[in-house]
């Protein structure tokens, strides 16, 4: 491969390549599934023209396009969130799951599934079809705020305490999830299992309307964090020395992650490894500067999830693999491989 003096790929060609990969993944994602679509039809429909196949327009616009957009947004948010947390904690192992966001969101969603007919009946009647995604979103954001409160009691926020609080919250949420699973009926169990494995299968414009504003907001706020996060790589005290408001930066970072991941989990369930693997890979290929890592992680995360989703629909057709399962199956071994041959983090 063509590397520069620092062993990195040049940025512009790498971006071009990634853009091309995204285009391929997008076409594959929109083209693959139970109903066969011709490439020309897809292009015509996306361009707003009449397709030769009348069903094609419906399939593309109502089913495949929202699914592709949702997949891309979720992947982008997970990638960026992972990059932000890894910078904030100065730890390449940080992941949105780590501070309890995902666990909190999934606990709330499972509670709605299992207790929707009983204890949480009022909430389900009130929120209707939004009950589950809204609960997941609230659960995710709530856990971030809780972890944040615990960690910032002494006036300033201790990052190590935040990490420890996240681990404890994960344990409690995991146990509570287990308890709910224990009480779930067979039918609830099926819906619950599918949900904890992560899926874009029911993606529709509804989900997009609910989740997209939060995810887009999180993605748009992220670039503001790039320079301060670079300073974080030199140590938390150096951030203040360099003239950034450390407390504000930390607050914005946690808010962005809570908002983005809460919304992502709400619409697609638990999807692991994107937040861990993608930023890691970007740093290996393009360097650790967050002005590169943040946008490229978004692009790569989105592309990866869209591609994985396309594959998940094909490998066991006409059924489909849960995307969360798929990501762990690909991401786990891939990450182990990376660890075995790494030089620096």
């Amino acid at each position: 491969m063509i590397r520069d003096h620092s062993g990195r790929l040049p940025l512009a060609p790498a971006l071009l390549l990634l853009g091309a990969l995204l285009a391929v993944a997008a076409l594959a994602s929109i083209g693959s599934g139970a109903y066969d679509l011709a490439l020309m039809d897809i292009l015509k429909v996306v361009a707003g023209r009449e397709a030769s196949d009348p069903v094609a327009a419906m399939v593309v616009l109502e089913v495949r396009l929202p699914r592709f957009l949702l997949g891309f947004l979720v992947g982008a948010v997970l990638g960026v969130s992972g990059a932000i947390l890894q910078g904030l904690f100065r730890n390449p192992l940080a992941d949105p799951g780590l501070i309890g966001v995902s666990a909190g969101a999934s606990l709330a969603a499972i509670a709605v599934i299992v207790l929707g007919g009983t204890a949480l009946g009022g909430w389900v009647t009130l929120a209707g079809q939004w009950a589950l995604p809204l609960a997941a979103f609230a659960g995710g954001s709530g856990t971030v705020i809780l972890a944040w409160r615990i960690a910032s009691r002494a006036g300033q926020t201790a990052v190590a305490t935040l990490l420890l609080a996240g681990i404890a919250i994960n344990a409690v949420a995991g146990a509570a999830t287990g308890l709910l699973t224990f009480y779930a009926s067979d039918e609830e169990l099926r819906s619950l299992t599918f949900w904890t494995m992560g899926s874009l299968g029911h993606a529709a414009w509804d989900d997009l309307v609910l989740g997209a504003p939060f995810m887009i907001l999180a993605l748009m706020a992220a670039p503001w964090l790039a320079r301060p996060l670079d300073a974080f790589l030199l140590g938390e005290s150096v951030v203040g020395h360099l003239g950034y408001r450390t407390a504000t930066v930390k607050k914005v970072a946690i808010l962005v992650v809570g908002l983005g991941v809460g919304a992502a989990v709400a619409v697609s369930g638990l999807i692991g490894f994107v937040g861990l693997v993608v930023p890691h890979l970007v740093r290996q290929l393009l360097g650790a500067s967050h002005r590169v890592v943040l946008p490229v992680s978004a692009l790569m995360g989105g592309t990866l999830l869209v591609a994985a989703d396309a594959i998940a629909r094909v490998v066991v057709a006409p059924a489909e693999l849960p995307i969360g399962l798929m990501m762990s199956l690909i991401g786990g071994p891939f990450f182990l491989g990376l660890l075995m041959r790494r030089k620096v983090m």
């Binding site: 140590g235 020395h241 360097g287 650790a288």
Partner: peptide, 17 residues
């Protein structure tokens, strides 16, 4: 400007950066 006793960099930043 402050030069701390030690600054540990774990991430692949270059000298220039």
């Amino acid at each position: 400007a402050i030069m701390p006793q030690s600054v540990e960099v774990n991430f692949p930043l270059t000298v220039e950066e």
